[in-house]
């Protein structure tokens, strides 16, 4: 599939931050999660991926940093082929790409500080980090990351002692430790109530606007898409069915992505917001 013409052009001669080319993922069970998906992401974009659950959003995000190995197709990071990268090369690419998860993915029994520091492992001395030794500069970096998301006072608590919203903020702080150029957010608010949802997305927006971190975020709710996205991709059954600006998504487009239950999804999201 060729990139659509509505796609914002990047300056000629300079390659986009991320290029996804003909990405296909077939699971061993035979499920086709992604089918020939291509798109580019420019620096400082806030790209939102929409689609029903099972449409391939999570698989797409995980193929970018190869948490899931794509079956075919390429992902280029700054012109470098992630899909062909050797382990050491892959690690150095991964540490430039932060990730935030729907289920937060914190180590529940570890302290908030340890969880945040674990985001820095890609930079740390492999031997000292194994026995839990961190230089003071890294501890200070972790404190700054926690201050950034407003929960510096919880630094010594166990992760599972925190509320869902606080846990997701720890997740954002952990990603910040990587000093990422790109942040992948896989349904970051699906496990949170609507008020908290906005506060988490506001942190992501701030990182995007103030720090210039490119964001790729998968979302459910249309109103949130309009509020935060600079560009939108719609997935349906693993196929890219929409790519364009958020204001281009109207009822009709939305129905194409979500199918007939779109009405209810939208109503629920409006009510929630």
């Amino acid at each position: 599939m060729l990139p659509l013409s509505s796609h914002p052009a990047h300056p000629p001669g300079e390659c986009p931050l991320l290029q996804v080319q003909n990405l296909t993922k077939v699971y061993p069970s035979g499920t086709v999660a992604l089918k020939d998906v291509s798109f580019d992401v420019d620096d400082r974009e806030f790209l939102v991926v929409i689609g029903l659950s099972g449409s391939g959003k999570s698989t797409l995000l995980r193929c970018i940093n190869r948490l899931i190995e794509p079956t075919s197709g390429r992902v280029l990071w700054d012109g470098q082929d992630i899909t062909a990268a050797a382990p050491a090369e892959l690690r150095s690419i991964r540490r430039q790409i932060g990730m935030v998860f729907q289920q937060f993915n914190l180590v529940r029994r570890s302290s908030v500080l340890t969880n945040v520091l674990s985001g820095r492992l890609g930079y740390a001395n492999p031997w000292l980090s194994l026995i839990g030794l961190w230089p003071p500069t890294e501890r200070e970096r972790a404190m700054r990351a926690l201050e950034r998301v407003g929960i510096a006072d919880k630094v010594n608590e166990r992760a599972d002692a925190l509320s869902g919203g606080q846990q997701q903020r720890v997740g954002v702080a952990r990603a910040l430790m990587q000093e990422p150029r790109l942040l992948l957010a896989d349904e970051p608010i699906a496990s949170l109530d609507p008020v908290l949802a906005h506060s988490i997305l506001q942190y992501l927006e701030q990182l995007n606007k103030k720090d210039g971190i490119t964001v790729i975020c998968s979302l459910h709710f249309l109103d949130l898409v309009h509020r935060y996205a600079t560009r939108v991709i719609g997935l349906k059954d693993g196929i890219k069915v929409f790519e364009g600006l958020p204001q281009e998504i109207d009822r009709k487009r939305f129905k194409e992505v979500y199918g007939e239950e779109a009405q209810e999804v939208r109503a629920a999201s409006l009510e929630a917001a």
């Binding site: 991964r94 932060g98 993915n105 985001g119 890609g122 990587q178 992948l184």
Partner: peptide
């Protein structure tokens, strides 16, 4: 989950 998250950080 945590394995996934820590792997993703490089």
């Amino acid at each position: 989950g945590p394995i996934e998250a820590i792997t993703a950080s490089g």
